[in-house]
Write a protein that binds this DNA or RNA. Structure first.
Length: 903
RNA sequence: GGGCGAUUAGCUCAGUUGGUUAGAGCGCACCCUUGACAUGGGUGAGGUCACAGGUUCGAAUCCUGUAUCGCCCACCA
């Protein structure tokens, strides 16, 4: 007989099990053109840090799907990877270097800085990859990807070049969101809007020809006045009508600007006069274009005032504001300050107040039609969802998706940072006219030199001078890099080798493959929209059929776990170390709902740990049965007992529910069904029954085997370990075939019978407690059974043992003497008491039941006496209600009888 | 300013297309050293499903409004 330790110790087994899985090649799909492949691209974690509990939940969902589809027999690919996370990573390293050496990135230099970042990223990458493994993630390591690897980089550069040739990418001067701290542009969705209790400053701009008179403007950012090109009023505004066409002085610096009219101005806001600063406000920029105004930069890229600000030159923009206001007050040009609450953009990364600023940037045009396709990228994104080619779960996020996509504006893709994919564009030195694009300097040099016989010098005019005095040209590559979402937008096809028509690209993408994107709902617009957009352009196809969005993990007080508040953080590695990966996975799945946050608390983790222990002990009990190894497979011909037919039916039910839940992405329901079956049906009832009925081992074995397969996707380690211990097969559980549900094996008769047996056992237990009979005491019970007598007789051993009765007998009438009477369903039963019984308790209990059932009957009768109900409700519902009423009346009748015969 | 979601037991949440006396886990009370498991077993208490209307034979579920909380989007200075 085999012996298993009393407690499951995951630390002892998990590493070995994972290595065995990986070594066996189970993670790598076998390409089979007769089968439909299933694919999950793993959202690549940023190489900025370590795995947190959010990653853990993502991995849990994806591994469940992967393992399930693999067991279903589909060639299943879950490809892992990491994201270089341009701005985020650079920022982390910059801060690190600043702390260590006190130097900023400009002092370090581009090349040296990139080396440092690369080193850091590699390090971080390795940590993250090993952490993905300890979660049990069954992803294909032979297809490990990285957004900066050769394959992905090639795709990124190629798509840039193609889009540019198609006119879908252009370079232009625009007012963009600028972070003075990060020193780069930010896309709209990298901005966080926060409501600020600010001020609206009313300022005088004096007339040139009559300094005693002035026009009053209102602004929240007075420091931008040095970039003003005009004052605009509404053409119909009577208040300022006389001043139109005149010029005014900008205070302090006394530069002249005209007063113009524009429909855009809101007469009722502020003073009705708007200062126009084309270089620092997107609306002003548009107005400036309409009136051919100059764009004047008053604030530089680091947030300091430019020459235009006169004596404020070199001051930080906010210090300038303070000084300026003081000076304006002194000179009498500050009219008033009003409290004004408004939203101000902050850098999503470093929380610095964003400065809208004019600069030359690269953009993706989203509303222009793609040449030869008669559809814009925006239209693709709309159509994917509208035509139901892509399903978003939960559906309500489709609204958020459209809210974003319908208001799409051209996407600024250039960033003034160094870490990332450099824009593959070259210029002649001192010219910003694009000349040629090529991926890397050597490729570029070769191209020019082959075609022109000119020696090319790259970025260093002094070096590489040809010795023979032949022609020499100097070229520079665009210094900017691409938005990190530009490369992660290629995640569904780039890593497969696009633009080459590789086997992976054809096999593992739609329409051939079933692809699911499972990610955090927060990046729906940031990432999912970009993948749709990029895939639409590259493949003229959807990237996936389903987007499943999970929510954030919060602590038990519903607070988001954040690094800044360590007390809220649960480190996934701690849980794995203490309780194993299965426990962590369960805790993250049970109670989760798509798009909703999930509370993870210590109590829940303990509950899940208890469940794993329970599974282990159930398995231990079964495997330690003396006849475990020799027990034959169950055959249908053999006559089975009620309980045996019942538990086999339950397993069939579990198969049905598991499949239904997984198919519809109801991960929690799947986990709960497993929990409920194993604990409440199998352990609490059948295992106990198996100790009473002989010949149970084949059934126990069969149920355990099926349960292990069904539970494997969510708790892979413990199920695999038990599978090996039980030696169900010579192979690993990970490669087992998912058991198909067979409707014929659902035995409703067995279920109904078992319900009656359970009801009787529960009623006896309950009565014992009510009658205050010692739990250990053996008792005698008499059942007044009518129709169920045969069933109870057949299962009398079970009823006796589980209700702890010494003897159970049947009778046609109520016995006399010291008895405690109660009911189980419609059967009366009586416990024979040694002593005088507490008739008060008995009466109380019976009366309580009578009251409940009377209320119930009243409700049913009212319903059935309602002619409209009879007329309108479906026949099944009516007959069901009638049946219920009959049963209730029967029960009431017996209860009444019992009460009457009470002494 | 525009939009979305939530409100069910002390706590965390299920509740599929309206149709069992509204469920689970945790917690709580009482009992139990039953030979797989005390990380266990048994019994029980606890809800007018946020509020007010409406539709319907029938509403936790559908509609309207109110309140509270949460979230997203946004170039009115």
């Amino acid at each position: 007989m085999k012996e298993l330790p009393k407690n499951y110790e995951p630390q002892k087994y998990e590493k070995d099990i994972y290595e065995k899985w990986e070594k066996s090649g189970a993670f790598t799909p076998k390409i089979d053109h007769k089968k439909r492949p299933f694919v999950i691209p793993m959202p690549p974690p940023n190489v900025t840090g370590i795995l947190h509990v959010g990653h853990a939940s993502m991995l849990a969902y994806q591994d469940i799907l992967t393992r399930w589809h693999r067991m279903l027999g589909q060639p299943t690919l879950w490809y892992p990877g990491t994201d270089h996370a341009a701005i985020a990573t650079q920022e982390v390293v910059e801060r690190k270097i600043k702390n260590e050496t006190g130097k900023n990135r400009y002092e370090i230099g581009r090349e040296k800085m990139l080396e440092e970042i690369k080193k850091f990223a590699e390090n971080s990458r390795h940590t993250i990859l090993s952490q993905i493994k300890i979660m049990g993630a069954s992803c294909d390591w032979t297809r490990l990807k990285y957004t900066m690897d050769e394959t992905s980089s090639k795709a990124v550069q190629e798509i840039f070049i193609r889009m540019h040739k198609d006119g879908m990418i252009y370079r232009g001067d625009r007012v963009v969101n600028w972070c003075p701290r990060c020193n780069t542009t930010l896309a709209n969705d990298e901005i966080e809007h926060k409501d600020i209790d600010g001020h609206l400053y009313h300022i005088k701009y004096r007339l040139q020809n009559d300094p005693g008179k002035f026009i009053e403007i209102a602004t929240t950012r007075p420091e931008t006045m040095f970039g003003d090109s005009a004052i605009a009023v509404h053409p119909q505004d009577k208040k300022w009508k006389n001043l139109i066409g005149q010029t005014v002085f900008i205070p302090i610096i006394n530069r002249e600007i005209p007063i113009i009219t524009d429909e855009y101005v809101d007469i009722n806001f502020g003073s009705g006069a708007l200062k126009i600063t084309p270089a620092h406000d997107p609306n002003d920029f548009e107005i400036g274009k309409r009136h051919q105004l100059k764009s004047i930069l008053a604030i530089d890229e680091k947030g300091f005032m430019t020459d235009e600000a006169g004596k404020y030159k070199g001051l930080d923009r906010f210090i300038c504001r303070e000084n300026l206001l003081r000076d304006l007050e002194k000179s009498g040009e500050l009219i008033e300050i009003k409290k004004y609450s408004h939203a101000v953009g902050h850098c999503g990364r470093c929380k610095t107040v964003v400065e809208p600023r004019l600069s030359k940037q690269w953009f993706v045009s989203v509303t222009e039609k793609i040449p030869g396709r008669n559809k814009s990228l925006q239209e693709y994104c709309q159509e994917f969802i509208r035509a139901k080619k892509i399903k978003i779960i939960p559906k309500r996020f489709e609204k958020q998706y459209f809210n974003w996509v319908d208001n799409f504006r051209d996407w600024c893709i250039s960033r003034q940072i160094w870490w990332g994919h450099r824009i593959p564009v070259w210029y002649r030195l001192n010219s910003d006219v694009l000349e040629v694009y090529k991926r890397n300097p050597n490729e570029f040099r070769q191209l020019i030199e082959n075609e022109t016989n000119i020696t090319v010098s790259i970025e260093n005019p002094e070096k590489d001078k040809p010795a023979d005095g032949s022609k020499n040209e100097h070229w520079v590559q665009d210094p900017d890099t691409l938005d990190t979402w530009f490369s992660s937008g290629c995640w569904t096809f780039g890593p497969h080798g696009w633009p080459d028509e590789t086997e992976d690209l054809k096999y593992f993408t739609p329409p051939n493959a079933e692809v699911v994107m499972e990610t955090y709902w927060d990046i729906l617009t940031l990432w999912v929209v970009r993948m749709n957009l990029m895939t639409a352009y590259a493949l003229d196809e959807i990237p996936y059929q389903t987007v499943y969005l999970h929510g954030a993990i919060v602590d038990k007080n519903n607070k988001k776990m954040s690094k800044s508040r360590p007390e809220t953080c649960i480190d996934p590695r701690d849980i794995i170390e203490k309780h194993g990966a299965d426990v962590l996975r369960l805790s993250l799945i049970i109670g989760s709902a798509p798009g909703a946050q999930l509370a993870l608390a210590e109590e829940k983790i303990i509950g899940c740990r208890n469940f794993i222990t329970k599974i282990w002990n159930v398995a231990r009990f079964i495997i330690e049965q003396p006849d475990f190894e020799t027990a034959p497979a169950i055959s249908e011909s053999k006559t089975l007992s009620t309980s045996q037919r019942w538990i086999l039916s339950c397993i069939e039910d579990l198969k049905k529910h598991s499949k239904k839940s997984l198919k519809s992405f109801h991960f929690s329901a799947y986990g709960e069904a497993l929990y409920d079956f194993l604990w409440n049906s199998f352990a609490d009832w059948y295992l106990e029954i198996s100790k009473i009925e002989t010949g149970s081992t084949p059934i126990l074995k069969e149920v355990l085997k099926n349960f292990l397969i069904l539970a494997h996707p969510i708790i892979p380690f413990v199920t695999e370990k038990i599978w090996q211990e039980a030696e169900f097969t010579k192979t690993q559980l990970i490669s087992e075939t998912w058991p198909e549900f067979n409707k014929k094996l659902i035995d409703q008769k067995a279920q109904a019978e078992m319900n009656k047996i359970q009801a009787m056992i529960k009623a006896i237990r309950s009565a014992r407690a009510e009658a205050k009979i010692n739990a250990g005491a053996k008792i005698k019970t008499i059942i007044e059974a009518n129709t169920n007598k045969e069933l109870f007789t057949q299962n009398i051993g079970i009823i006796k043992k589980l209700s702890r009765c010494e003897e159970i007998s049947f009778s046609n009438k109520k016995p006399t003497g010291n008895i405690f009477s109660f009911m189980a369903g419609t059967d009366s039963a009586h416990i024979i008491m040694d002593d005088l019984i507490d008739s008060v308790a008995e009466k109380t209990r019976l009366n309580k039941e009578v009251n409940e059932i009377k209320l119930y009957i009243t409700g049913l009768e009212a319903k059935l006496n309602n002619k409209k109900f009879i007329k309108n409700a479906p026949k099944e519902v009516v007959s069901k209600e009638k049946e219920k009423l009959e049963q209730a009346k029967l029960r009431l009748e017996k209860l009444d009888k019992q009460i009457k015969t009470l002494s």
